[in-house]
């Protein structure tokens, strides 16, 4: 597996982590009313979308940079 392919796999897993943390943070906020965690969770959900956008950009930009 090339670095390009490993990076794509890593970002896909990161998207799931960011989305999962966002969901966890919302549920944690409902139980504890910890505003900082809620803000971090919201930012993480936005981050998961940004990572997905970056993933599409990265795949298209490095398509000719070697086999995946």
């Amino acid at each position: 597996m090339s670095l390009r392919a490993f990076h794509i796999l890593f970002i896909v897993i990161s998207v799931f982590l960011a989305a999962g943390f966002g969901v966890w943070a919302v549920r944690h906020y409902q139980a504890t009313r910890d505003a900082l965690i809620f803000v971090l969770g919201a930012a993480s959900l936005v981050g998961s979308v940004l990572l997905a956008v970056y993933l599409v950009w990265f795949i298209s930009k490095t398509r000719k940079m070697g086999p995946s």
């Binding site: 670095l3 990076h7 890593f10 897993i13 999962g20």
Partner: peptide, 16 residues
């Protein structure tokens, strides 16, 4: 880079 991604991936599992 492969090594560095592995190290990062370990943290991605450690964190949750």
């Amino acid at each position: 880079g492969l090594y560095w991604h592995f190290v990062d991936l370990v943290w991605i599992f450690l964190f949750p």
